[in-house]
């Protein structure tokens, strides 16, 4: 099948994110854009979630551990009809519907995060619980480079392998940039995939902007029976907007009206 629908959805949510960051005069656009293609495949194809039945006990549990990129999930949920698109016009605003870091008060959002290192431990608990209930639900956690600095993430990595949580998948949006600089200059994550493999996970490296590779990896979970799955998605921070791509500044960049127009033109219709 073609991958055009992913591109179309990703373009939409990228534009939504730019719009929200402009409306809210808020940051983290670079982190949203690097995740957009992963989010597009997740919400277009992979995740079993239903806007008409958001609390379905059999749904997949998707937790965004990199809560600062919450707007990219809000955009996907709005596009999928979990809440009115107009809410995006209130992002980060007084009396708004959408707070800067992802919030479970928003329909369709599984879990609130914002401080890194919280997503994976909670996903382990949910994975244990759903396994015991013999549910088919998958638990998918999207993490950032910064998440991989947190000790709690590594506590959970060890635990998930020990308990054989093969209904759990962690995806790292590995864009190589964290708040103050390039990861290689702060805490070098070189060899992340093999390190996690050594801890006992099934692992794979993919291009986090290649729809075929994303779909392929997420369509065959778990990668190895009896093991949790760790997908290192190599991405580009700010992907899709040339003046944001691979820049440290894109983490906190303000999207002025002028930049918004320029960015939207680049993404196109």
């Amino acid at each position: 099948m073609g991958y055009g629908k992913y591109k179309e959805f990703a373009d939409k949510i990228r534009k939504d994110c730019l719009y929200m960051c402009n409306v809210g005069a808020s940051g983290h656009i670079g982190s949203m854009l690097s995740s957009a293609d992963l989010i597009a495949v997740l919400y277009e194809k992979i995740l079993n979630v239903d806007p008409n039945y958001p609390d379905d006990p059999d749904r997949d549990r998707f937790i965004l551990s990199k809560g600062h990129a919450g707007a990219v999930v809000y955009a996907a949920l709005a596009e999928k009809g979990f809440f009115p698109k107009e809410w995006m016009g209130t992002y980060y605003c007084d009396n708004g519907k959408l707070m800067g870091h992802i919030s479970h008060h928003v329909p369709g959002v599984e879990y609130s995060t914002g401080s890194l290192g919280h997503g994976l431990p909670v996903c382990c608990g949910k994975a244990l619980a759903l396994k015991k209930q013999k549910k088919e639900s998958r638990i998918i956690c999207l993490m950032s480079d910064g998440d991989c600095n947190e000790g709690s993430t590594w506590e959970a990595i060890m635990f998930a392998a020990q308990t054989g949580l093969d209904n759990l998948t962690a995806i790292v949006d590995y864009n190589h940039i964290q708040a103050l600089g390039f990861t290689k200059d702060i805490i070098n994550l070189k060899g992340l995939t093999s390190k996690v493999a050594q801890f006992g996970w099934g692992v794979v490296d993919i291009d986090g902007h290649n729809y075929q590779e994303i779909e392929e990896a997420l369509s065959h979970l778990p990668l190895e029976k009896g093991k949790p799955t760790f997908i290192v998605a190599h991405t580009v921070k700010g992907k899709g907007v040339s003046f944001l791509e691979n820049t440290v500044a894109s983490h906190y960049a303000h999207i002025s009206d002028e930049l918004l127009e320029k960015a939207l033109q680049e993404i196109g219709d």
């Binding site: 994976l120 431990p121 608990g125 619980a129 635990f159 020990q162």
Partner: peptide, 28 residues
């Protein structure tokens, strides 16, 4: 044994795991 977890010396994960269990119909 199926309702007992020793996460190792890792209190952050202990609490996160308990939260996940507690949100899925258990008392952790």
């Amino acid at each position: 044994p199926n309702r007992y977890y020793n996460v190792g010396v890792a209190e952050q994960n202990m609490t996160g795991v308990a939260c996940g269990l507690g949100m899925e119909g258990n008392i952790a």
